[in-house]
Design a protein around this nucleic acid. Structure first.
Lengths: 229, 229
DNA sequence: CCCTACGCAAGAGCAGTGCTCTCATTTGTG
DNA sequence: CACAAATGAGAGCACTGCTCTTGCGTAGGG
């Protein structure tokens, strides 16, 4: 009610944010599994039991990092795409993908937190689905722009079961895209995260080198697949 | 030297295997991060310090599970493929991919161990690279059979940098496949693992349902991409 | 046949973890 | 000023990975 209440609430939020920030800082050097609540407590000059006033549990802390991580990743990719001429669809596509990859390489542990093995109790709260969809949403917007520009996206008669299976994502984005384009768009999103994870998690060690040129080629072929000119 | 030495060595190996088996059994219900060496020690009726006679560390135990996991996954996929008529290239492709997916759904925690965030040390020992390549190797064999059957795999002039970047994998498999086919094959392997991880880690929750029909469609398009008839 | 040496398992112990509880202190308001 | 809520500290529990020391049983050599 009073402004003092606001001040209090603000201070609380600031303290909580300081804790989350300290946790993210630690995440730069150690993996999610190593992240210790007691250590971040020491970093912010508190005793472990005190941070429980601001964060319900270690998992809650990780969840907060996940939400912020998705947001940071999405913002980085969007910024990269925004730097390209709107009419250059393929250029935007590459910028978006490379923006995501660059962010991932700069924040490998955060990427692992987002796309690695889910944390034990991970019951993907609703808070995460929207920030997690930022890049896919940009992909959809790109396809939308392509259609508006006269590009014919790939079409194909789909089995009813397949059409039904992608109904949720069709509804989520509320775009009028051909089913085949949706299928390929989802594949592109999968390829993007899969490629970055393979790079970061070492699955391409001894197979591809240097990684970046292959990644670009990969995303170029996905651009072909989704029908970008 | 003596047979007694052999007996001893055998007993040692058996004991070690019992420990690894117990660990894998635990992995069926709890995630890799939760796997506690003390708990598996209790499972095999030992005290924690005793298992250190057989396993150097918790990480070593996880590494053993990783190697066996890659092997089990590869065997499952290969068995599925072997059940299909040799001449049915696309059928073999689908069987291989679905075999991998089925194994993953039956052993989600082991999949997370293989393709989720790498364990802290991330020092992928040489022991893992060969079993890890089982499925990719089958994919290469499939493409080889296609060529032998008169199929023309996709070809394309590649930039020198791209050709150079895939040189390691070209050499590893020692097959005479066109560069473009290698690029697309690597993409297919990435798509396969990415799709399964997205399913298991919940990244397709609320986007695709049911998952299986979409997965099949996805792998079908990858078969198109690599040039299977 | 005894005695030694070795492999093995057990126990105690260290440093660390997540989390809960109680207690004191601070802080802002009636 | 007094009261009450919010806050931080400390102790403590059960657990972890890992090390070190101790006792035990068996196999091999003298």
């Amino acid at each position: 009610m009073s402004t003092a209440d606001d001040v209090r609430r603000r201070a609380r939020a600031d303290m909580r944010q300081a804790i989350v920030d300290a946790a993210r800082a630690r995440l730069a050097t150690e993996g999610p599994a190593q992240l210790s609540l007691r250590a971040v407590a020491r970093d912010v000059g508190m005793v472990s039991s005190a941070v429980y006033r601001y964060v319900a549990s270690r998992d809650a802390l990780l969840t907060a990092l996940i939400v912020e991580g998705y947001d940071a990743l999405g913002a980085a990719a969007e910024d990269a795409e925004a730097a390209v001429d709107d009419a250059d669809l393929r250029g935007r596509w590459h910028a978006l993908c490379l923006g995501a990859r660059n962010w991932a390489h700069q924040h490998p542990q955060e990427w692992a937190l987002l796309f690695g093995s889910p944390v034990p109790g991970y019951a993907a709260p609703q808070d995460t689905v929207d920030p997690a969809a930022r890049i896919p949403r940009r992909m959809v917007a790109l396809l939308h722009d392509a259609v508006a520009g006269g590009v014919r996206l790939p079409e194909r008669e789909l089995p009813a079961a397949l059409t039904a299976s992608i109904a949720p994502v069709q509804e989520f984005f509320g775009e009028e895209l051909p089913g085949e384009a949706v299928v390929r768009g989802l594949m592109a999103w999968t390829q993007l995260t899969g490629a970055i994870s393979h790079e970061l998690f070492g699955h391409r060690h001894g197979a591809v080198d240097p990684h970046e040129v292959f990644f670009a080629a990969e995303m170029d072929r996905m651009a072909d697949l989704v029908g970008l000119p």
